[in-house]
Amino acid sequence: MPKPPHICNCGQIVPHGERCACQIVRTRARNRRHDARRPSAAQRGYNHEWRKARVEFLRLHPCCAMCGAPADVLDHVKPHRGDMVLFWDRSNWQPLCKSCHDRVKQRTDCSQ
């Protein structure tokens, strides 16, 4: 049996498992504000040296640490939050596929 729709704060009826258009607009605006304050990738340490280290690490560790699929993302196990010692600590690196990184890993990072 399908689950019932819910009512958004704006008063719209939204099918189960979907988001209201107003929620999508608010999320995009919040993300734009966050990105405007966030340093660039290069300022956060993701430069040429990182890209070379990433390619080498993924060559040596080609499988996702979570599901075993081919890995294409080099992830920090513990978020470094700007700590360059932790950023370059190879024991804090793990290979992940994009799916695990974008879904499973990000969900666990948000709860920390």
Rank of each mutant, 00 (worst) to 15 (best):
I24R: 13
K52N: 07
D72N: 15
P62F: 04
F57G: 05
M84C: 02
P2M: 10
Q23D: 15
E49K: 14
R103N: 15
I13G: 05
H61S: 08
N9F: 03
D75S: 05
I13A: 11
H6F: 13
R59F: 10
R37N: 14
D75P: 02
E56L: 09
C22A: 04
P39T: 07
I7Q: 15
R32C: 06
W50H: 02
R37V: 00
M84A: 06
P62S: 00
R81Q: 14
C97R: 06
N47H: 03
C20G: 01
S91H: 12
P4L: 14
P62Q: 12
H34L: 14
A71H: 01
D109G: 00
W88M: 08
W88I: 01
W93L: 09
S40G: 10
E18K: 15
P5M: 07
C67W: 07
A65G: 14
G17H: 05
K52A: 11
E18D: 12
T27C: 05
C67E: 12
R32V: 03
R32G: 03
C8I: 05
C67N: 10
A29S: 12
T27P: 00
W50V: 09
L58V: 05
V55Q: 13
Q23S: 12
Q12T: 03
M1L: 08
F57L: 09
R33Q: 15
P5T: 08
H48D: 14
Q43F: 01
N31S: 12
D83N: 15
F87D: 06
C8S: 10
G11L: 05
